[in-house]
Amino acid sequence: MNTLNTQHSKPNAPVDYLLHLADNALILGQRNAEWCGHGPILEEDIALSNNSLDLIGQARMLYQHAASLQGAGATEDTLAYFRDVPDFKNYTLCELPHTPLMSATAQGDRDFAMTMARNFLYSSLMVLVWDQLQNSKDTQLAAIAAKSLKEVRYHLRHSRDWLVRLGDGTDESHAKAQSA
């Protein structure tokens, strides 16, 4: 991939970083949305749907900012939906299925503990990232970080509480949390 912006001849690393952040949020937001109508309780359908909306909202802001920096006709939609799979810069963790990796379960089976473990790990990282990015010299990125930090703190608390609940629950829930 060409790392130079041909219009301004400046390194394009900030756009690549914005795409990395946006791709993570978009992919995990879509993954969490798969729980809509399938959560263990109604409140979790709502909580994970809200989590998804937060992440997709973060992705939108980041894609819009990246498009404005990239220029050349780039838009939020072209960056989010019209790039080839190898061009996405997300962590593999964000796209993993909702099943334990070594599981022999049928395709489509969802493991809530796996989702909570993934959300906990991602949110733990993003609390640190957004906290630091609030001080970015890029004022738009700093504003996105400030808004996102509030959301990801809730996501972290939510997933942490569920991991404790699963770990301290029944033998089966404890085993699933450990497996995740």
Rank of each mutant, 00 (worst) to 15 (best):
D109Y: 12
A117V: 11
W130M: 04
V152D: 11
A117P: 09
R83V: 10
Y154C: 06
H20G: 09
E172C: 12
L69N: 09
K176Y: 09
L133F: 15
H174T: 08
P100K: 03
E151F: 02
L21T: 03
G71R: 05
R118P: 09
G29R: 00
F120K: 05
R118C: 10
M1W: 07
T139H: 09
H65Q: 14
D16C: 05
H158D: 07
H38T: 04
D161I: 00
F88M: 14
D109N: 13
Q134T: 15
P11W: 05
L69W: 02
H38Q: 07
T3I: 06
N24S: 07
N5C: 06
A47C: 05
L28P: 00
D138A: 13
S159W: 02
D45F: 02
L28A: 08
D109P: 04
S124P: 06
A47G: 01
N5E: 13
Y154T: 12
H20E: 13
C36S: 03
L156F: 08
P100W: 07
D87V: 09
L96M: 15
A146M: 05
L48C: 02
A74M: 13
N51F: 01
R60I: 05
M102C: 09
S173V: 08
N24C: 10
T78A: 12
I56L: 08
A180N: 04
G167K: 02
E44A: 02
M116V: 08
V129A: 11
G57D: 05
S68Y: 05
D84W: 03
N32E: 05
A142K: 04
L21R: 11
K176I: 00
D77N: 15
K147D: 12
K150Q: 11
S123D: 11
C94E: 09
D131M: 00
T3G: 13
G39A: 02
M102I: 12
T99L: 10
A143Y: 13
H65D: 06
A59S: 05
L96R: 15
P97S: 11
P97Q: 10
P97F: 14
M114P: 11
K137V: 08
N119Q: 07
G39W: 00
G73S: 09
Q58H: 11
L28R: 03
D23G: 13
S52I: 02
N51D: 03
Y81T: 10
Q140R: 12
S179C: 13
V164R: 03
R118W: 03
D87S: 15
F82R: 15
Q107D: 10
M114I: 15
L163K: 05
H20R: 13
K150H: 01
N24G: 07
P11F: 05
